[in-house]
Amino acid sequence: MGRKSFEPNATLLNRLILLLVCLGSCGLVYVFLNVITRSGSVSELRIGSTLDLVGENVVGGCCRGVENLELWGSAVKWGSDFKFNTSEGCCNACKSMCTGKDGPCLCDSWVFCGNRQACGSKFGECWLKKQKDSLAPERQEEAPHGETIHWTSGLIFGKGEGIIGLETEHGTLHIKLFPDCAPHTVAYILELLPMRHCAGCQFYRAESRGQSWDSEGNHIKNAGFGPPFALIQGTLEAQGTPFNKLPLEDCPILRRGSVALIGPGPEFFISLADHSEWKQEYTVFGSVLPEDMNVAEKIAALPTLPDVWNNVNVTVLEKPVPFLFRRINKSSQD
């Protein structure tokens, strides 16, 4: 009787030991395979390790580019022997050449060939480049013999780079552009930059922070969320220049100073407060430097008139505020 009760326990113990051994072996195999599949190549594994040392501005950030675009410029890394499986890997490799948080960067543009069929032997090539002028990058306008350009390219702006001036009669708003998060929108802004006059570009709506947000843009507990809605709104459409709708790009939570596109544009706004209550549906293509937010606040304090848009109470400027874009000398921002 005792033996019969003992044998199942011994068998169970043996089976348990065997199960633990199998699970341990499977775990080791999983870890090994996971490392291989995630690394993709020796280059990507090396770059990933480097990125961890660069800072939060690089790791986990955006890494977008524009398809069917080939940027030229002086190569700092030749793509013939530097390859990745994705454009994100190529972009991060460029970011890893920035020293410290937000640059300066030895690489400000990247070019990746990601169409396996069209690229052929060039598939995966990642060219890291440095432009003579990062605000006016060199580009291949069209492929030879009228062929389609199969490359994807992007820009990286380090410290003191990619800052433009939005000049108004009330002061200049210095805006840091985010080409790695909103490459199509930033490309459009760079097209406007050479214009001496941006006729039609103006702010026409102004909403103060009211009693809902403090001077730092923090929402006051138990306060409403507007109106007023803590923003200044305008248009980026220049008269005489055709505007093509822009795609939806990176839409993070809006912070004080965020410069965001409304839908496909050309309407945009500058947020005067943190707006975590709004859905993440606006392309954020830049941010006003903190020291210039007083200019935005000055515009928000101008005389306004009440209006109703889609059953929402808003305030529009009695007199719209025109603006134009200005290049900013990099040395003045260092």
Rank of each mutant, 00 (worst) to 15 (best):
G165R: 00
G165L: 00
L166P: 01
L166A: 06
L166F: 04
E167Q: 15
E167Y: 07
E167N: 14
E167H: 11
E169N: 12
E169V: 09
H170G: 02
G171F: 00
G171K: 01
T172R: 08
T172N: 05
T172Y: 02
T172S: 11
L173I: 08
L173M: 10
H174D: 06
H174T: 10
H174F: 07
H174Q: 12
I175P: 01
I175C: 02
K176A: 05
L177T: 05
F178K: 12
F178R: 12
F178M: 06
F178Q: 12
F178Y: 11
P179L: 14
P179Q: 14
P179I: 14
D180Y: 01
C181Y: 10
C181G: 15
A182C: 06
P183N: 03
P183Y: 02
T185K: 03
T185R: 03
V186E: 04
A187C: 09
A187Y: 04
I189G: 02
I189N: 02
L190V: 10
L190N: 03
L190R: 07
L190S: 08
E191D: 15
E191P: 13
L192I: 07
L193R: 01
P194R: 11
P194C: 10
P194S: 12
M195P: 10
M195S: 15
R196V: 15
R196I: 15
H197I: 10
C198F: 06
C198W: 06
G200L: 13
G200Q: 08
C201W: 00
C201A: 09
F203H: 06
F203L: 06
F203N: 09
Y204L: 13
Y204I: 12
Y204R: 14
Y204A: 12
Y204N: 15
R205V: 13
A206I: 03
E207H: 04
S208K: 04
S208V: 03
S208N: 07
R209G: 00
G210M: 05
G210I: 03
G210Q: 08
Q211S: 14
Q211M: 11
Q211T: 15
W213F: 09
W213T: 02
D214S: 13
D214N: 15
D214P: 08
D214L: 12
S215L: 12
G217E: 02
N218Y: 13
H219Q: 14
I220W: 03
I220A: 05
I220R: 06
I220E: 06
I220D: 10
K221D: 11
K221N: 13
K221I: 12
N222P: 08
A223V: 11
G224N: 07
F225V: 09
F225S: 10
F225G: 04
G226F: 00
G226N: 02
P228Q: 07
F229C: 00
F229I: 03
A230I: 00
A230S: 01
A230R: 00
A230L: 01
L231Y: 10
L231D: 13
L231G: 04
Q233F: 03
Q233G: 10
G234H: 03
G234C: 07
T235L: 04
T235G: 08
T235S: 14
L236A: 06
E237D: 09
E237L: 08
E237I: 03
A238F: 01
Q239A: 14
Q239S: 12
Q239C: 12
G240I: 08
G240P: 02
T241N: 13
T241P: 01
T241K: 15
